[in-house]
Design a protein around this nucleic acid. Sequence first.
DNA 1: GAAAACATACCGACCAGTTGGTATTGTCGT
DNA 2: ACGACAATACCAACTGGTCGGTATGTTTTC
Lengths: 208, 208
Amino acid sequence: MTRVPRGEARARLIAAARDLVRRKGYAATSVDELCAAAGVTKGAFFHHFASKEALGVALVQDWTETTGAMFAAHPYNQVPDPLDRVFAYIDLRRSLLDTPLPEFSCVAGTTVQETYLTAPAIRRAAAESIASGGEHVRAHLAQALAAHPVAGISADSLARQFQIAVQGGIILAKAAGDPAPAREALDHLERYLRLLFDRPGPVRAPAR
Amino acid sequence: MTRVPRGEARARLIAAARDLVRRKGYAATSVDELCAAAGVTKGAFFHHFASKEALGVALVQDWTETTGAMFAAHPYNQVPDPLDRVFAYIDLRRSLLDTPLPEFSCVAGTTVQETYLTAPAIRRAAAESIASGGEHVRAHLAQALAAHPVAGISADSLARQFQIAVQGGIILAKAAGDPAPAREALDHLERYLRLLFDRPGPVRAPAR
DNA sequence: GAAAACATACCGACCAGTTGGTATTGTCGT
DNA sequence: ACGACAATACCAACTGGTCGGTATGTTTTC
């Protein structure tokens, strides 16, 4: 058994948790299992985290930061027109679906389903994660709406619809064992936006 | 301790499971807990179900039947125009959101997130449940599309988008601790359909 | 040498599942 | 109509193992 270099235990535990929680869920992932996957002992676990729930919170917060940094640094942000930027973001989300299913599974979405009543701290972290994820596209949407207002539509509300499509898509993809429904959800979302903003685009048939 | 009448143990266990799984998830709900909630002993549990996983499958199948019968029997099916029927269905789904959060939580959506890799039998049952839920509205959508075809849109694909909106809405509602995002998702879905079918309706602002 | 970062050994509670048994119900020959 | 018998429905106690968590080391870093 190779030893984990000193100072890496915490990061490795969170990485192991990200992987295991996406596959089996939060409750079904045990602390022992986490330690084994991270190559770390239980003493290290409870040195860094006061409880399993504390790890859950840290995991979701790390998820928020990691995905946030990833979206913020992505070249799609350079697209000049705000609405085109939104479409580029949808393309980016589509491309994420090319990875295996457990890898595009959302940590926040998965954990909040199990813990929204039993672990309020995790619920709060997940709520912030989902809100933060919507914030990226919300900024582009706000600019697009400023240039082309749509009656009764706010950037906030539309940004939430992005999260709805992504989260709902993941659930249907898991049920089907196939990313196709998730991709389809993004296709419909794009079509909805093109109708709202009166901006016809390249033909992309949502139906398979 | 009042005894459960003979012959009711199975039904009571499924009812207890529906309640507990919606609140805490599948993995976090123990067999002991289930038996206590149903007022039944462990012997009864394993008399009716070969394993905890077998109960999970039965729970999801029961969910499919119960919700299916509920939607099939509902008066919204009497609305003459197929597209109006679709909008009436959306209204029905909106009204379901008036119950407390754990009660409008979807059993199939919750369990599939936790078990799609660890319990294939439950995953299959959940996939069927979601497909069956879409089937109701798919029939109306097919008729609406027959009368008013939309290029690149199939009834199947659109029916799946209903499930996406519902499932995604539940996740955001759980994160927020508030049904508002789920309602909003249905508002956007309705607006999308009205744009697709060129059928403007009563103004309903999705933004809060 | 003190504090942080681990490791080891262990605890009581709880886990899914099994056991051997009993009460109730249906069935069938007479 | 009735007793023999079997199947079903259920129960209470228990099993080996796992759970989250703790107490107490040992090693490394500053």
